[in-house]
């Protein structure tokens, strides 16, 4: 469970171009569910995702993590907490640690690193953890197989088709086996067949027990069967939530 309490996020505060992207959001995201943020462009979906994923800090409000805390044992010990962790007040280096152990990100533009191979792109999130090289390559190859990228493991990512790139991005998000997957407009660059495939993959991840949070305005996404909850976002605020 991830809980947001009256979270606000403003940009360029106290400047003429001040802009409040998220205003007073209170929300609980259940574990092992697929949650979709839906809303028009500029409504604040991406901002919400980066707040949840500890990429940025809110201007005010609290964000609490309640599951999978043993994964970030070190931070808990330092904070004297055991069953929940308030993240907004943590220093940058802890946020990084949380990001790399708890969250896997799938970006709208895939954001793969050009010029290096599929295999290395997938392995990248594991490097700061200092895991054994053998273990890491084995896991990366397992992911490559899962996503049917076997033949392309040593191809440079810029040679990949859109669907392949998407799958590499997913594999990279799963590299450190995070409990939560965050995907921002994952189908924006895919045709409908690939979008359906993507949602099937998501469904598979849900069955593995992952928590999935997606931002999208693609009907193919929020009309898919495995979605548990759709949250409407408009002007940085939430409007009702259905299943």
């Amino acid at each position: 469970m991830i809980r947001l309490l009256d979270v606000r996020k403003g940009f360029n505060l106290a400047k003429p171009n001040e802009y409040i992207a998220v205003s007073g959001v209170t929300l609980t995201i259940e574990a092992n569910r697929v949650t979709v943020f839906k809303g028009p462009s500029g409504s604040g979906k991406t901002t919400l995702l980066s707040l949840i994923g500890c990429m940025t800090r809110p201007t005010s409000g609290r964000i609490e993590l309640m599951d999978n805390l043993p994964l970030i044992n070190g931070i808990l010990r330092d904070n004297g907490e055991t069953n929940r962790l308030e993240v907004t007040s943590l220093p940058e280096r802890f946020l990084t640690e949380i990001r790399r152990r708890l969250f896997g990100f799938i970006f709208q533009q895939f954001n793969l690193i050009k010029g290096i191979t599929v295999l290395e792109n997938i392995m990248l999130p594991s490097y700061p953890l200092g895991r054994k090289h053998g273990f890491v390559t084995e896991r990366a190859h397992a992911l490559i197989d899962t996503f049917g990228l076997g033949a392309r493991a040593s191809a440079k990512v810029e040679w990949l088709s859109g669907g392949e790139a998407q799958r590499v991005a997913i594999a990279r998000a799963l590299m450190n086996d995070p409990p939560v997957i965050i995907a921002d407009e994952p189908t924006a660059h895919l045709d409908s067949k690939l979008s359906v495939e993507f949602m099937e993959i998501i469904s598979g991840l849900k069955n593995q027990g992952k928590t999935i949070i997606i931002a999208s305005h693609d009907p193919l996404v929020f009309e898919a069967g495995m979605i548990d909850r759709i949250i409407n976002v408009r002007d940085g605020m939430l409007y009702g939530s259905g299943t």
């Binding site: 090289h133 053998g134 390559t137 084995e138 190859h141 493991a153």
Partner: peptide, 13 residues
Amino acid sequence: MDNHKMIPDSARK
């Protein structure tokens, strides 16, 4: 998992 061309450690960059 079986037929991977596992990178031998010596060829690691």
